[in-house]
Design a protein around this nucleic acid. Sequence first.
DNA 1: CTAGAACCTGACGTTGACGTCAAGGGCAAG
DNA 2: CTTGCCCTTGACGTCAACGTCAGGTTCTAG
Lengths: 132, 132
Amino acid sequence: MRIGEVARGAGVSPRALRYYEEQGLLSSERTSGGQRDYPESAVERVRLIQQFFTAGLPSRAIQRLLPCVDSGEGSPEVFDLLTAERDRITAAIADLAATRDALDSLIATAHHPTPEHCPGLREPAWAPYESP
Amino acid sequence: MRIGEVARGAGVSPRALRYYEEQGLLSSERTSGGQRDYPESAVERVRLIQQFFTAGLPSRAIQRLLPCVDSGEGSPEVFDLLTAERDRITAAIADLAATRDALDSLIATAHHPTPEHCPGLREPAWAPYESP
DNA sequence: CTAGAACCTGACGTTGACGTCAAGGGCAAG
DNA sequence: CTTGCCCTTGACGTCAACGTCAGGTTCTAG
């Protein structure tokens, strides 16, 4: 497969694939003319890389994780990285859920256009002009 | 409160607070000498701003949301923004959960150091040399 | 064989939320 | 009044994951 096919198949740009290769995340053969040649599995590979990027992992971490994904075995350092990233993701999920709930209650109060909009999104003193 | 107190109280840098003010997210009085003077509520305000930033909202969106948070009422545009961001966050949570599960199974396979490491993180053809 | 699409390398530009440095001014203690 | 810490504005630096442009090469359809 040429780079454009892989890019379209994975929903990214050719530039992104060259960037991944530059970062050591994706390898490619070369044709006699010097153009990149990928196996079919590259599409799924790129989707996995994108999934990691979406999860907030930097390319350096992905670079260390991918061999472990392939081989199924990992050094204790990689193991620590895995657990650390999992914990970070878990915390991020909690933060996002809290913010989503806040937005939901904001939506709820903003949805009923009554003049008695209950201004109680948060418990702290949200009344700016309550000084004695 | 001076800027340093607010910064320490909210766990951010003074530079961040000046940036928030520059972006129209945070206002401040000035002392006779020109220094910023914040009410106590600014700490909680900054925490809210941080929460939105952590959730991936850009400053422009936060700028549009904060008046709604204060007043409890919002234009239909703000309402659309709210629901759009909530949906985006919901999708982000789903992505993160999927990646965390993938990392979990990767951790599981990497944890038992038997030579029969089950290489089945994903269903697609992860065997690179299986061509007929 | 030729036109055009796709590809190559190399290099610079973009964006957002700040960090950092420079040069100076304000403020409470002693 | 001075010491020292905190503050001010202004401007430039950072970092990551690409976007974009330039100038040239390769592949493929006709």
